[in-house]
Simulated assay, not measured.
Amino acid sequence: MSADFETVLKELGGKLTQVESVMDIDSLRKEVAELEEEAARPNLWDDPEAAQKVTSQLSHKQAEIRKVTELRQRLDDLGVLYELAEAEGDAASKAEAENDVTGLSKDVDALEVRTLLSGEYDQRNAVVTIRSEAGGVDAADWAEMLLRMYLRWAERHGYPTDVYDISYAEEAGIRSATFKVTAPYVYGTLSVEQGTHRLVRISPFDNQSRRQTSFAHVEVLPEVEEVDHVEVPEKDIRVDVYRSSGPGGQSVNTTDSAVRITHLPTGVVVSCQNEKSQLQNKAAAMKVLQAKLLQRKKAEERAELDALRDGGSSWGNQMRNYVLHPYQQVKDVRTSFEVGNPTAVLDGELDAFLEAGIRWRKQQEADAA
């Protein structure tokens, strides 16, 4: 085996060993065995919600073990393939092994990024809200483009999404939208997207075809679980019902099923209109409200800690620029990571930005420690 190829495999092997150590594969296997035992109980589905949680956890942990096992097998097979190809002078097989090592390296790096998600809520589902900001109709259109971008990203990964609420703007686009993405660690992954996204382009709404800069804000929250104990007394909320609005469909504007909840002590307002049932919409809106109140609570705790440290580090609000004119570029303000293909990014190719953001955040945390 050539020295260069052997070095690459050794480095990959070391990185994978570190990933296996952080993930604690032995403990993961024990957890899988316990969950399998629990899933086999005859009365498991007497409580459908608890059963769903058990089967979901089991599926996720099995997938994690399978992912690591398959990477380790691919690494071992590559070494054998390259040695055989070199011994037999098979140039085509050597080239294939060298190509495969690039893909393997990318997959190991992606798994390594997952191990960096160790925050209190990182493993949870994500509740994402997008709001148009400065820029008029262009900003509303930009907010809708961002909504599509994130939904396409989720679709590419096979992550289920549930759009809770969309407030449409008068001329085009949306004022705001709230949706949930369901997948392990998706909150930790998407949380680096929080902040202001800036778009520069020739406005399709300007009859003089002038360049326009518009802004939209992305908020990412962890889905609230029962263990969070976010108390919301009935006396602290006002519930308003109204008819759903939006594009077509016979069920639109026929019943007062949409729900808006106002948290009186804080002024936080949430709404949901995606279900036909008023009760379902209220339940979904309450979950979003609890997520927002949990975020406020955590922000207050962080502010107190920062005060004790004589002020904490701020990551700033503006986090990414998307330029469609006079040149093509998407650049992250924090990490400086950039690509020259905005079309692909806006179609959901976000993984490289997410990985760069997660690594950057981890470094920021390490520097602040």
Rank of each mutant, 00 (worst) to 15 (best):
Gly316Asn: 01
Ser2Leu: 03
Ser257Gln: 03
Gly348Cys: 07
Asp107His: 11
Lys106His: 14
Asp347Gly: 14
Lys362Pro: 05
Gly13Met: 01
Lys67Arg: 15
Ile358Ser: 01
Ile358Pro: 01
Gly267Trp: 11
Gln273Lys: 12
Ala139Asn: 06
Leu58Ala: 06
Val333Gln: 09
Tyr150Asn: 00
Ala134Glu: 05
Ala369Gln: 15
Ala91Cys: 01
Ala63His: 12
Glu171Met: 15
Leu116Gln: 08
Val252Thr: 14
Gly249Asn: 06
Lys276Met: 12
Ala366Asn: 11
Val218Ser: 05
Ile202Met: 13
Val333Cys: 12
Arg124Ile: 10
Thr266Tyr: 08
Ser132Tyr: 04
Gln363Pro: 05
Val113Gly: 03
Ile202Asn: 06
Leu279Asp: 07
Ser313Tyr: 04
Leu279Gly: 05
Ser251Ala: 13
Lys53Thr: 13
Glu234Gln: 11
Glu304Asn: 12
Glu11Arg: 15
Asp256Leu: 06
Arg211Gln: 11
Asp347His: 09
Thr161Arg: 00
Leu350Trp: 03
Ala344Val: 08
Val330Glu: 03
Thr178Ala: 02
Glu300Asp: 14
Ala51Asn: 09
Arg243Gly: 00
Glu338Thr: 13
Ala366Ile: 14
Asp165Ser: 15
Arg302Cys: 06
Ser244Gly: 15
Val54Thr: 14
Cys272Phe: 05
Tyr327Gly: 06
Arg175Thr: 08
Leu151Cys: 02
Ser167His: 15
Glu365Ile: 14
Leu308Ser: 10
Ala92His: 04
Val227Cys: 07
Asn281Arg: 11
Ile174Cys: 04
Ala87Gln: 15
Leu151Asp: 00
Glu120Trp: 04
Asn341Pro: 01
Leu147Glu: 03
Phe5Pro: 00
Tyr322Glu: 01
Arg334Trp: 04
Asn281Gln: 09
Gln273Pro: 08
Glu98Tyr: 02
Asp77Cys: 03
Glu223Gln: 14
Glu6Cys: 06
Leu44Tyr: 05
Arg320Tyr: 05
Arg243Ala: 00
Leu71Ile: 02
Pro222Leu: 06
Ala283Cys: 06
Tyr187Ile: 12
Gln278Leu: 07
Arg152Lys: 14
His217Asp: 07
Lys180Phe: 05
Ser314Lys: 06
Phe205Ile: 11
Pro48Tyr: 08
Val68Phe: 14
Met149Asn: 01
Asn125Thr: 07
Leu308Ile: 12
Ser314Gln: 13
Asp90Leu: 00
Ser245Ala: 08
Ala92Gln: 14
Val232Asn: 00
Asp367Asn: 14
Trp45Gln: 04
Leu104Glu: 02
Ala369Trp: 13
Glu225Tyr: 03
Lys106Glu: 13
Lys292His: 02
Glu34Phe: 02
Leu190Asp: 03
Val186Ile: 15
Val22Thr: 09
Cys272Trp: 03
Ser244Thr: 09
Leu71Glu: 01
Arg156Glu: 13
Arg211Ala: 09
Asp109Thr: 12
Gly195Ser: 10
Leu264Gly: 10
Tyr242Asp: 01
Gln212Ala: 09
Gly89Asn: 12
Pro233Glu: 04
Ala303Asn: 13
Val227His: 08
Lys362Met: 11
Ile237Asn: 02
Asn43Ser: 10
Tyr187Thr: 03
Met1Ala: 06
Leu289Trp: 01
Met319Pro: 02
Thr262His: 10
Ala284Val: 13
Asn207Thr: 14
Ala40Gln: 06
Leu221Ile: 04
Gly14Glu: 07
Val259Leu: 11
Ile202Cys: 12
Trp315Tyr: 07
Leu78Tyr: 00
Lys235Gly: 05
Leu279Phe: 09
Asp100Arg: 14
Tyr159Asp: 04
Glu219Met: 08
Ser132Asp: 04
